[in-house]
Computed example of a mutant assay.
Amino acid sequence: MSLDNEILAFIQKELSAKDLTLDSALNIGKQATVPEDVWDLLEKIADVYSIDFTHIEWHKYFPQVGIPFLPNFILPRSLKTDYSTPERLTIKMIVEAARVGRWNYDH
């Protein structure tokens, strides 16, 4: 089994989502997964495939959601909603990280 298929099968099993493909984005679209589940998944994949995810810029893929019923102007910066469009976090990106042993997209 190729590394692509091995990691895809691992992610499908972990997320109980057999319809995922290598091009599926885990953070946006119809296969979007909550940030906590993606974080847990990346921790498991890091352990199994020896990937260093320390340089992943999480906010690029999961912008901060503040307090929805309060306007940003009255909130401290740490609680403001980030309305920027998230970048896609795909399974193919995770496979590439496994090939090189580290996250290579946010340097």
Rank of each mutant, 00 (worst) to 15 (best):
D47K: 08
A97F: 11
T33D: 11
N5Y: 11
S16L: 08
D40P: 04
I94D: 10
E14W: 09
Q64D: 01
L26C: 09
I28P: 02
V48A: 06
E43W: 02
L20W: 05
K18E: 15
S50A: 14
I45Y: 04
H107T: 06
L41R: 04
R77M: 06
D40Q: 14
T54A: 05
F73V: 11
Y49F: 13
S16M: 11
T54L: 07
E87Q: 15
Y105N: 03
Q31F: 12
F69R: 03
S78K: 13
R99P: 00
D19R: 12
I94L: 05
I51P: 04
D52H: 10
T85I: 15
A98H: 00
S84N: 09
A46Q: 01
I28F: 05
L26R: 08
P35M: 01
A32H: 02
E6C: 07
V100C: 09
P71R: 09
W103E: 09
S2P: 04
R77W: 07
I51Q: 00
R88W: 09
M1K: 13
L8R: 06
F69H: 12
D4F: 08
D106C: 01
I11H: 09
E57Q: 15
A98K: 03
L42M: 15
P63L: 06
I91R: 03
I74Y: 10
L22W: 13
Y61I: 02
V95G: 01
L75N: 01
G101P: 01
E43L: 10
I28M: 07
P71K: 14
L15K: 05
E87A: 14
